[in-house]
């Protein structure tokens, strides 16, 4: 026993070092495998409030471009309304949107997160999809009263089901951790005829994102003769580094769909 105490006394610095590193490592593992945000994350009071203050200051610098964007979107919506009045097709998606502002984000890391300024009070729940006018942004991971943290599409665990617009073949989109402008698309059989510039949209299978939301265009096809599946890269239409205003989708039919699927699996 006395030897042990002496040993601890002698190497207390090394022991403390190892303990702290093990603790840090434990935090990393725990946060990764369970997707559990510990109480120390960017939705807690101090950090989120400071992000909000920074974001308020920054938003003045981009007022002009924001205005232009809004004008463009207005025009687009107007044309959609007139189109609907003519053809009277039921609306493209059955989702209800909650507008939100991004107050913090990253694109340079291997696993990126976004913090938005809407939370439980505004009706945001875990698992909701986040989209912007030009594409898919991510999925809500954690909510607090006034803020939410979003698993960005630029995260190694984000996976989105997508469709090639011109022939309705579906695949899945995943980021490879390199360039924030590009992502990879898997599971599209190699016999499908594709060209550079083909549009990619969401499939809406999961009801997380509304169907027919534009995601990007094919920017690189590297398929070899023997491959079963296409080796595809696409570039996002949305500039994920600059995006500021987003919509959180409230899926109206998600429960109904899940209920139906549950009944099927019970039989």
């Amino acid at each position: 026993m006395r030897n042990l105490i002496e040993l601890i006394n002698k190497y207390n610095h090394q022991i403390l070092f190892i303990l702290l590193e093990v603790f840090a490592f434990f935090l990393i593992i725990q946060n990764n495998s369970f997707q559990k945000a510990a109480f120390i994350n960017s939705t807690n009071g101090v950090t989120a409030t400071s992000f909000l203050a920074i974001s308020n200051v920054k938003s003045y610098f981009s007022l002009k471009s924001t205005n232009e964007l809004l004008l463009m979107e207005n025009a687009k919506l107007k044309s959609l309304i007139s189109y609907q009045q003519k053809v009277s097709i039921s609306s493209i998606s059955a989702s209800h949107f909650i507008p939100a502002t991004i107050i913090n984000k990253s694109v340079a890391r291997a696993n990126n997160y976004i913090t938005i300024d809407k939370g439980k009070i505004d009706g945001i729940k875990k698992g909701m999809g986040v989209v912007s006018n030009n594409g898919v942004i991510g999925i809500v991971k954690e909510t607090s009263k006034h803020f939410s943290s979003v698993l960005s599409i630029l995260h190694s665990k984000s996976k989105v089901s997508v469709v090639i617009k011109k022939n309705n073949h579906f695949g899945s989109l995943q980021w490879d951790g390199k360039n924030y402008k590009k992502a990879k698309i898997y599971d599209i059989p190699s016999h499908v005829d594709l060209q550079l510039g083909d549009t990619i949209i969401t499939s809406g299978f999961s009801y997380i994102f509304p169907s027919n939301t534009i995601v990007g265009v094919i920017s690189d096809i590297k398929t070899k003769e023997a491959d079963k599946f296409h080796n595809l890269k696409m570039s996002f239409i949305e500039d994920l580094k600059e995006v500021k205003y987003v919509n959180v989708c409230q899926p109206l039919k998600k429960e109904e769909k899940e209920l139906l699927e549950e009944q099927l699996s019970n039989e």
């Binding site: 840090a24 434990f26 935090l27 990393i28 960017s42 890391r109």
Partner: peptide
């Protein structure tokens, strides 16, 4: 740093 970056444990390590 981790709290601000949402990267639990990385910077600590």
């Amino acid at each position: 740093m981790d709290a601000f970056q949402n990267s639990m444990g990385l910077h600590t390590f």
